[in-house]
Structures are given as C-alpha cells and as structure tokens.
C-alpha cells in the first residue's frame, strides 16, 4: 500500500483542477462561482489532510487519549470557510448587478455588448 500514501493529496489536486476548469471553460458567471467554491473546498481538504495524524482523535482534551489531530489547520480553515462565504456573497451580488446592467450572465455576450458602442 506504499504508493497510496499520497492518495488524499491526489484527490485534492483532482478537485482543484475540476474547479479551475470550471472557472476557465464555462462562460456562465454563476458556474464560474461554483468552480471557485470547488477549488476552495479542495484547499480546505488539503489543510485538514495535513493536520490529520494516524491513530489520533479530535483535538478535544479528555482523559486517556494519547494523541490528537493538529488543531492549527482546523482553526485556519474555520476562518477560511466563513471568509469564503463572504466572498461568495460578494461575487453573487456582483453577478446580480451585471445582470441588471447587461441583461445577461454569459461571458461572451457581455463582451459583445462592450464592443458595440
């Protein structure tokens, strides 16, 4: 099983690339935001994977438990999740404004309207 020791990291990278692909390839702005969310979650999983440790338990102090998972990545990711929702809200608000202005949330049709005087 030695070659599986990085399996978690591989999954993280696959998810990250799926998110990146959505951001690059989809013209629809809401789908781009969904792609960003996937990317973000993959980073969360990367951090939590780094913090996990074999045979450890959740970092809540109790009698008779020898080893705990690393609490520091958990704290960082708690902050990141909430900040992520704030940025998602802002992005969606921008999309609503763009839709009011251009009547479309499609990348290419917005560009077309910009090109016409």
């Amino acid at each position: 099983m030695n070659w599986l020791i990085h399996y978690n990291y591989w999954i993280v990278i696959v998810l990250m690339m799926i998110g990146l692909y959505l951001v690059i390839a989809r013209a629809n702005l809401v789908r781009k935001v969904i792609g960003l969310n996937i990317f973000q979650t993959s980073v969360f999983i990367l951090f939590i994977s780094i913090g996990a440790s074999r045979g450890a338990s959740a970092p809540i102090l109790a009698e008779g438990i020898q080893s705990y998972a690393n609490p520091l990545p958990h704290v960082l990711i708690l902050t990141a999740i909430v900040v992520g929702v704030a940025t998602t809200a802002l992005a969606l608000a921008l999309i609503v404004r763009i839709h009011e202005e251009y009547g479309s949330i499609d990348d290419s049709s917005i560009h077309d309207q910009d090109d016409e005087p």
Binding site: P73, H74, I81, T88, A89, L92, I95, V96
Partner: peptide, 30 residues
C-alpha cells in the same frame, strides 16, 4: 473522518446551508 469536527460543523452549516441559500437567492433574482 479526518478528526476535524469543528470544521465539519462549520462546513455543514455555512458551506452547505448559507452558500446554497445565497446561490438560490441569486438565481431567483436573475
């Protein structure tokens, strides 16, 4: 599964809950 229970709470409440509500709200506005 990765022993991060606090993060799991937050992700379930904020990630699965509020983000979905925000996106649905956006869709209804659009």
């Amino acid at each position: 599964l990765l022993d991060a229970v606090d993060v799991a709470f937050t992700e379930a409440a904020v990630g699965a809950g509020i983000t979905t509500v925000l996106m649905l709200g956006t869709l209804s506005l659009l």
